[in-house]
Design a protein around this nucleic acid. Sequence first.
DNA 1: CAGCCTCGCAACACATTGTGTTGCATGAGA
DNA 2: TCTCATGCAACACAATGTGTTGCGAGGCTG
Lengths: 141, 141
Amino acid sequence: MLHVLLHMISAREAVTSDRLAAMMGTNPVVVRRVMAGLREAGYLRSEKGHGGGWTLACDPATITLDDIYRALGSPPVFAMGHRTESPGCLVEQSVNAALEDAFREAEAVLLARLRHVTLAALAADFGARLKACTAERLQAS
Amino acid sequence: MLHVLLHMISAREAVTSDRLAAMMGTNPVVVRRVMAGLREAGYLRSEKGHGGGWTLACDPATITLDDIYRALGSPPVFAMGHRTESPGCLVEQSVNAALEDAFREAEAVLLARLRHVTLAALAADFGARLKACTAERLQAS
DNA sequence: CAGCCTCGCAACACATTGTGTTGCATGAGA
DNA sequence: TCTCATGCAACACAATGTGTTGCGAGGCTG
């Protein structure tokens, strides 16, 4: 997902789902599926017809990874645990309380981290890598 | 899993997989499957034959939730991301770097939290809940 | 207007994974 | 010897994510 967005920042004009799918090694329908959330959230625009495709609808500096995460529907972060909700068994309640606390705290840390990374920052990081890579290549030749 | 362990602390004698399965609403084979890791790690013992079953092999105060997590094979914590490892695309590398950092930090927080919760602490919490519950019941009657 | 391009959406096919289930062998006690 | 219990392997099943196809709607171009 982020991969797609960064590619779109590099390419200033509209990009079709087909091209993005080719970049990601998947197919266009999947791309549209995951981009739908971003479009509804107003971060992206999609245009039909010849010369259409996807364009950024906001400033990359104002959107954070957390925004993207929520636009995607805030999918579950953790792969484990999260048992049934207090099924009367007190043992279950104790376990849930301890784990839920730990999970909530870890999730808060993760989201805080995502919240202060903007798309523009990612793009800048990419630029730095590109520069380092080309410098390395020049040195090799 | 933790649910099972707490039940075993309450019951001082050996408990069969059948009984544990009944408590958890599953079946004995599944119980044995997940307990196998704990047995190999030395936290549990299992005995065959009549009167056999599962017993604790350690002091609940010395084993933490992190120990249990690792005895279970340290299953993946997060449900998302973790794309392919640097497939040459620099964009992918930038995205991975940013996300891996965030995930590592969140995982560290989670494990630190698990590391200072012992089984005995969970059992004590359960005791407190039991007490509160019975008090509430007395008040209601 | 006709033809092509692109997205939007729904339905289906498929692989993967976790979970439940069955069967049989092994060891321990009555 | 019989019963109880674990250990292990193999299979059945449901849920989920992903890829695929088909059709319709809208927009550009000649």
